[in-house]
Amino acid sequence: MPTNLVIIACSIFKYELEHLKSKGKINIPIIYLNSMLHMYPKELQELLDMKIEEFNKFKIILVFGDCHARMVDYEKNTNITRTPGINCCEIFLGSEKYKKVRREGAFILLPEWADRWKEAFIEYMGFKTSKPAREFMNDMHKKLVYVDTGFQETNNEQLKEISEFLGLPIEIYKTSIGELENTIVQLMAENK
């Protein structure tokens, strides 16, 4: 195991990275930051700065999109590399698929956020009831797209509940974690 290499990742990737770890594809420590920080970029930056400082003797792979104003600056440090992609959805789907789905007016829902949807929409975004949430989502999007990353059972009841609360139809987009796996494996090899 490379002892001087660490992954710092958004928890949106937790299920998939832990799966890759269990398969032996990742053999380095992974530190997660709460994906709800997506709504608080300044706080995300502060926490991430602290974590990077804590691991300043390590080579670091950041598994994040361009999630705060100075995210790209980390890559100027020789010990830091970052997964390419504008956000977690693009990192999962790849640029072409991401843009296609986004241009269809989709709000893309990843498995971790699907499980934490009440936390995300009610607690963090502040939609206390379905009515304003529906209005907001229908104003901004045409549909929800749940990204089934292919190794865990889809909770259809939960997806129905989310769809009803947000007032948008939901589609399931089946994919694999191949895109993410390839990226991580390549970054680990480059940083050996």
Binding site: M39, Y40, P41, K42, E43, Y124, M125, G126, F127, K128, P132, A133, E135, F136, D139
Partner: peptide
């Protein structure tokens, strides 16, 4: 300052 929720920001705009 990040002290207003997305819901509040959206609704006040609407």
């Amino acid at each position: 300052q990040g002290k207003l929720s997305l819901a509040h920001g959206y609704l006040s705009g609407k």
